[in-house]
């Protein structure tokens, strides 16, 4: 039996059940993710990409099925309990950091992800030294701005910081929810390269939702395409490397009508 870091077995999530707006965001959805996998996830609006991440992270309660992380059944876990395994970067740069708190305080909170928080001093001297070192990787000069509020940073800086925060306490699972969608193209590609480096260096098991098909093909070792809450395409390895955007469009253009195509 292969060693799975994450397994979803027949997970179903229905929004607005019993009303006219009923929507099956996840429909008997199953996915097995091996340790070290870097999976990109694409699909049109409403295909269930974000619901999938929400279900794994525990922010959305599923209706049916089972979610296993690190050999533990986490189906009923709350989001703050999932923090033990999962680290998440949201689409909006403001969502992943506390804007009124300082850079070093944000880093400290991230370092304590999923751990017990006691009445010990938060940003200790040794932690501050470590943060200074770690921040140099970003090459944004943030190591000189430890005591500044995060709200003063630009979107790209803030998202880079959020990414760095996820690796302070390497998670079992990294969830990236269109985390470059709110950035300008140049910053987006910088943040993506940073993502790739961090994922490789820390050998993080990663799920990355993206609207950009080029990104979905360029990064990761496996790509999953969702449609109406199910997996429509699942390719990996060499097969994925050979695939081109044109081929996907030719094959699935019918179901990928929206900005996924526009951003090719």
């Amino acid at each position: 039996m292969a060693e799975y870091m994450l397994a979803l077995n027949g997970v179903t999530k229905i929004f607005n059940k019993g009303t006219q707006d009923e929507k099956r965001a996840l429909d008997n959805f199953s996915l097995e993710v091996e340790k070290g996998d870097f999976i990109t996830i694409i699909g049109s609006n409403g295909a269930g990409k974000t619901t999938l991440l929400n279900a794994i992270a525990g922010t959305v309660e599923t209706d049916q099925g089972q979610i296993i992380v690190n050999d533990q059944d986490v189906t009923k876990w709350h989001d703050f309990q999932m923090a033990r395994f999962v680290s998440r970067v949201f689409q909006s740069p403001t969502m992943g950091t506390a804007g009124e708190m300082t850079i070093e305080e944000n880093l400290c909170m991230a370092e304590l992800r999923g751990k017990r928080r006691g009445l010990k001093w938060g940003v200790t001297k040794s932690r501050r030294l470590r943060y200074k070192e770690v921040l140099k990787v970003l090459d944004l000069g943030l190591e000189e701005r430890l005591k500044q509020a995060v709200g003063l940073l630009s979107g790209g800086q803030r998202q880079s910081l959020t990414l760095l925060m996820t690796t302070l306490a390497p998670p079992k699972l990294l969830l990236l929810d269109e985390h470059t969608a709110a950035l300008d193209p140049r910053t987006a590609s910088k943040v993506l390269d940073l993502t790739d480096t961090m994922v490789r260096e820390n050998r993080l098991t990663t799920l990355m939702v993206t609207h950009n098909m080029n990104h979905a093909l360029k990064y990761g070792n496996r790509m999953v395409m969702l449609h109406q809450g199910r997996i429509q395409l699942d390719i990996q390895g060499d097969e994925k490397k050979k695939l081109t955007v044109a081929e996907i469009v030719a094959k699935f253009g019918q179901t990928l009508k929206d900005e996924t195509l526009l951003s090719c």
Partner: peptide, 14 residues
């Protein structure tokens, strides 16, 4: 403090 600043973020941090 983060609870008052960015609740969603700090929940995701446990």
């Amino acid at each position: 403090r983060a609870t008052g600043d960015n609740e969603e973020m700090i929940r995701s941090l446990g």
